[in-house]
């Protein structure tokens, strides 16, 4: 195991970096996109609600790998070339955003409707009421399930390995097949994933405690 680390630390570190970068980008954008679709699902406008429903149902129910392949293989056939890292990150963002949308929507709907009514009666517009009153309460409610989504996201970033994204999983595969020390190669990779997910999981729990 030590030899895996000493011989391949540069590849592993690069992989860790790619996994981290992909996760951070996907987390940031899926949270924003997901929140928007969650809001679309509860707005008065029927058109927006339908758009959100369709988006969520499609991307929640297609394997992440299929979405990623679409960007990696199909898009380059008609438009621009997309490298593995970009395709994987976009795929992961879209896929995760559908789940985040569902999570945030359930949070919004579990906020007492009286909060929206009170805000509207107080003169606020729908978006002001959302922004200042409903969403802050909704996010508080959904911190635990959101934390699960984030951890899934980090793990799902291993989709990059299928599209030459040079992430942790990709490096693990390469090291395993060149060193023939499969057990230790994947063991080290597993530990490196834990190094990302454990602090994330602790942070989410801390956040949950602090807000209650």
């Amino acid at each position: 195991m030590i030899s895996i680390i000493t011989n391949h630390w540069q590849d592993l570190l690069y992989g860790l970096g790619q996994t981290l970068l992909c996760s951070i980008l996907a987390l940031f954008f899926s949270l924003i996109i997901g929140s928007f679709f969650a809001i679309f699902e509860v707005v008065p406008s029927k058109t927006l609600r339908i758009i959100a429903r369709v988006y969520i149902e499609i991307f929640r129910n297609i394997p992440l790998l299929v979405i990623t392949m679409f960007f990696y293989v199909v898009i380059p056939m008609f438009f621009v070339k997309v490298n593995g890292f970009t395709a994987g990150t976009i795929g992961l963002t879209i896929y995760t955003s559908a789940f985040i949308a569902e999570t945030v929507r359930s949070g919004i709907q579990s906020v007492d409707p009286g909060q929206m009514e009170g805000s509207r009666a107080n003169g606020m517009t729908f978006s002001q009421a959302m922004r200042y009153v409903v969403l802050p309460q909704a996010f508080r409610i959904v911190i635990p399930p959101l934390g699960n989504q984030f951890i899934n996201l980090v793990k799902n970033s291993s989709v990059l390995a299928f599209v030459a994204g040079f992430d942790l999983m990709y490096q693990g595969n390469t090291i395993a097949s060149t060193s023939f020390d499969t057990l230790n190669a994947y063991f080290v990779v597993g530990v490196l994933y834990l190094i990302i997910t454990m602090p994330l999981s602790y942070y989410m729990r801390y956040l949950e405690k602090r807000l209650n």
Binding site: D112, Q115, E117, G118, A121, N122, Y132
Partner: peptide, 13 residues
């Protein structure tokens, strides 16, 4: 203005 039976104060403020 409106005052409700169950107050509807902003819980996060």
């Amino acid at each position: 203005g409106m005052v409700f039976q169950h107050f509807n104060l902003y819980q996060n403020k």
